[in-house]
Design a protein around this nucleic acid. Structure first.
Length: 111
RNA sequence: UGAGUAAGUUGGGCAGUCGCGGCAAGGCGCGAGCCUUGGUGAGGAAAGUCCGAGCACCACAGGGCAAGGGUGCCAGAUAACGUCUGGUGGAGGCGACUCUAAGGAUAGUGUAACAGAAAACAACCGCCGGAUUUCCGGUAAGGAUGGAAAGGCGAGGUAAGAGCUCACCGGCGGUAUGGAGACAUACCGGCCGUAUAAACCCCACCCGGUGCAACACCAACAGGAGAGAGAAGCCGGCCCGGCACUUCUCCGACCGGUGGCUAAAGCCGUGCAGCGAUGUGCGGCGUAGAUAGAUGGCUGUCCCAGACAGAACUCGGCUUACAGACUUGCUCACACC
């Protein structure tokens, strides 16, 4: 199984916000854009509005884990950034999973 | 048993399963890297970044003074501290115990709103004496104001009063004794104008600045500087010279890579010294090191249903947040013997 490649550079995030498509729900916002690497890259943004360091870590892990589990069903060749909104602080695994599937579906990222 | 007080420990457990970061071993690959196995992987506050150190660079390179900042009862502990320990004075509590920014008001300056006559060379009312009515003098006992009113309270004394005199208490100064010291106790003296120094200030002691995004090394592109050679391009009739080309060296240095980066004034047990902080001997352990940032998800199960909260160079403290569970010492009340 391939490891999840992450997006790191700030300019890449900004490029996605500026040029990519996006869909939002109450919990999450997804930005996406076709890239030229032939594989997917994931970036996760959790702002300080969500909570303290522990809460942000938990949210980041939830999103990462859910993405990992559904990665096989996602079309290749996209950069995706998932932004957590404030309400994610109270969300559990299943809520996160539902939101992520719904948004990815709307974005046309699922096979 | 109840109430309290001080100190300490712990900070969901177990099983299955899917994952993540270092490390080690083995394997595959020219290599970048990949795979397998093993072991390891957040806190008591990791937090706030408030003090003190190590370490790094910059500045000064010796010393003194000034400025600015900090500390402020005494003694000790410590690498150091604004921390800690043991004391002293003061405050609170029946008590165990707790709290205390606790030098100097006789170096000087300032301030003390409102009220009040007066807030520090006190006379408004009152009281007493003399004039006789409107004034002069004495007086801090009483009234009234205030957070504070000229040591407190009682007696003597007096025209009325007053530390004017005396006893006790308090404060100040001196002497003696005890103590390492802060201080304590006793005696003597005169009765000495309050509070405020987290007001200026005075005194004593201490202090250079910036921080791991420090700093060191490796380094691509652009750019800059220098050196050498050439018969060969351009300017030129030719030489010199200049420009361009090529080679080398140096500077520079984004993104990036490596180091710094974890063994440390370390932790556990125990003996000795000390009231204690702590020191020291012996034995054992050697315990995260990421770089967009690793500790998580799911399922089952148990219980008292899980608080505050996430390492980012490293230590010693302080401060703040915190559900619950547990241990020990001591105090008070009640009951029993």
């Amino acid at each position: 199984m391939k490891k999840t490649v992450s997006i790191r550079q700030n300019h890449e995030f900004r490029s996605l916000y500026y040029k990519g498509g996006s869909k939002a729900s109450g919990l999450l916002v997804v930005y996406f854009k076709k890239n030229r690497y032939g594989q997917n890259r994931l970036g996760i943004t959790v702002s300080k509005k969500v909570g303290n360091a522990v809460t942000r870590n938990r949210v980041r892990r939830l999103i990462k884990e859910n993405y990992r589990l559904m990665e096989a069903e996602v079309r290749d060749g996209f950069d995706v950034v998932v932004v957590a909104r404030a309400r994610m602080a109270e969300a559990d695994f299943h809520a996160c999973r539902a939101a992520l599937y719904s948004l990815f579906g709307k974005c046309g990222l699922l096979r």
